[in-house]
């Protein structure tokens, strides 16, 4: 990926005029993906060609994986706010390190939010032939219910698990360390653990194939027939558990550039080709413009900060 961006950079440098030329004509726009191949990567790479057409610029998706997305986040945060570096952000994942008291080098409140691409509600799944039928049964197994988690404890799905189980007073254990969200789902199917909280969209293929069964979804109104929502079970707060894929640039991005980028993303997500891709691959769009994204992110951060104390306490015990 790097090599490609160098090549395109070199090609552009050859024909480059003074740096004052109007954005975005003189340099490629780097679109940082803070993870390796997977859902985030797919969104960025599918959107990039459409953005190129709309903006008339070269858009180079670049994977900067590492440290649960933090290395990519730092890269975007430290870049010059000239519109030539933007990045994808996993939310609320990137709020977690600060909330549980880990040192981070970016301040989400200062980021220049550009657009939201998608929002996946979470759902709670068990193995298809598991005897567990309801959240209540999962809560009363006579032993702690086990969940699978990707990476360390600050994965968004694990955070949702911790908040729900701790607040409901249910005994639980999270088996963390699975290499990807897919591997963590596989852990449920294999019987390593009882359950897993995962984005609904990623679970769908495994529900269709009869490998896993949903206990509930974290939605306001369920999109899966005969599966209750967490709101219907009386815990309306938890409808906020979900995963947003958001585009943001470094702090201080000029308003006009931000708005043009935001407009380009909105236009791209309406194009027929992308809508077809979105439907076929089960990667839904949930477009928000930059103002809407700012308020959605602020609300999201406030929601999780409410649980800061709880999370810090829970983590102390688990580590």
């Amino acid at each position: 990926m790097k090599l490609l961006s160098y090549v395109s950079l070199a090609l552009l440098v050859l024909g480059m005029g003074p740096a004052t030329a109007a954005w975005p004509d003189d340099k490629p726009i780097k679109f940082i993906i803070p993870f390796g191949p997977g859902g985030f990567d797919a969104y960025a790479r599918t959107l990039a060609p459409a953005l190129e057409k709309i903006l008339g610029a070269v858009v180079v998706p670049e994977n900067v994986p590492g440290a649960g997305g933090r290395i990519g986040a730092n890269t975007v945060y430290r870049a010059r706010p000239d519109g030539y570096t933007i990045g994808l952000w996993s939310m609320p994942g990137m709020t977690m390190p600060a909330i549980v008291g880990e040192r981070v080098r970016y301040d989400l409140n200062k980021l220049s939010w550009i657009a939201q691409l998608s929002y996946d509600a979470y759902a709670l799944a068990v193995k298809a032939d598991s005897p567990i039928r309801t959240l209540e049964e999962l809560c009363n197994l006579g032993r702690p219910a086990t969940f699978s988690g990707q990476g360390g404890f600050t994965e968004t799905a694990s955070i949702a698990t911790v908040i729900m189980m701790a607040e409901l007073g249910c005994p639980y254990k999270i088996v963390t360390g699975y290499q990807s969200s897919g591997q963590a789902t596989l852990a449920v199917m294999r019987g390593d653990v009882d359950a897993r909280v995962n984005p609904l969209g990623s679970l769908m293929p495994y529900i269709k194939s009869g490998d896993v069964r949903l206990l509930l979804t974290f939605e306001r109104e369920t999109s899966v027939p005969e599966v209750p929502t967490i709101a219907e079970l009386g815990h309306a707060d938890y409808v906020n558990f979900g995963l947003a894929r958001v585009v943001a640039g470094p702090p201080g991005l000029p308003d006009d550039i931000r708005d043009r980028l935001s407009g380009a993303f909105a236009e791209a997500m309406q194009s027929e080709k992308l809508l077809e891709w979105s439907q076929k691959t089960n990667n839904p769009f949930a477009p928000l413009d930059s103002q809407q994204t700012v308020s959605a992110m602020q609300e999201m951060m406030r929601f999780y900060e409410n649980y800061g104390e709880l999370l810090r306490m829970e983590f102390k015990g688990k580590r």
């Binding site: 390796g36 191949p37 997977g38 990567d41 797919a42 790479r45 599918t46 990807s180 293929p205 495994y206 269709k208 194939s209 490998d211 077809e276 891709w277 076929k280 691959t281 089960n282 990667n283």
Partner: peptide
């Protein structure tokens, strides 16, 4: 790592990798 990249090529082409 290699099969992850192969699957992401499929996703780009509108194929959703899953159990089927």
């Amino acid at each position: 790592a290699e099969s992850a990249l192969l699957l992401s090529i499929l996703i780009l082409h509108g194929i959703e990798p899953g159990p089927s």
